[in-house]
Amino acid sequence: MKADHPQAVNEAPIDFSAATMTEMKRVIGLFPEGKQKSAILSVLHLVQDELGWVSVGAMNRVAQILDIEPIEVYEVATFYTMFHLDPVGKNVLEVCRTGPCQLVGSDDLITYIEQKLDIKVGETTKDGMFTLKTVECLGACGYGPMLMCKYHFYERLTKEKVNEMLDAMREASKS
């Protein structure tokens, strides 16, 4: 098994929108003076909300904002699986594949979405509309099979519901 994660090219820190910066200040302010690093996960979520993913330039900026070394940001961002370290489609479908969901058909759900979107798990559709990922337990075991997209839980999914969901997402992402 090749476990290489090739070294990324360094990038200059990028700027975030004023709204994102305001929200970052708020979440940092939730912690005591000098404990700003505690806000790192909140801050990374905000980065991803704005960019769709977490780039090197964004992480370098986060290091400046939190007054820590860039490696401390890389270490954290690579540990937590919610952060996408590569560009993704407009809608990231994260399908739960763990035991309880598997008992009620998550394998079939994954296959169905793969066929429907003509991509494999881990890939993005050509139009950049969807990325399909599998994730471990999302804490919705009684309502499976399910997936998460943009922090929203789509539960007790059937083929019909998936079709409707995809159409609605396409529609919403057009504007």
């Binding site: 476990a3 070294q7 090219v9 090197v56 490696i71 401390e72 890389y74 690579t78 540990f79």
Partner: peptide, 22 residues
């Protein structure tokens, strides 16, 4: 003075690296 390498990723995939070319 400053650390530029660390432990990245996790579990079986955990590795010592600089993440960026550094």
């Amino acid at each position: 003075e400053k650390r530029v390498h660390g432990v990245l990723h996790r579990g079986e995939h955990a590795e010592i690296s600089t993440y960026i070319e550094n």
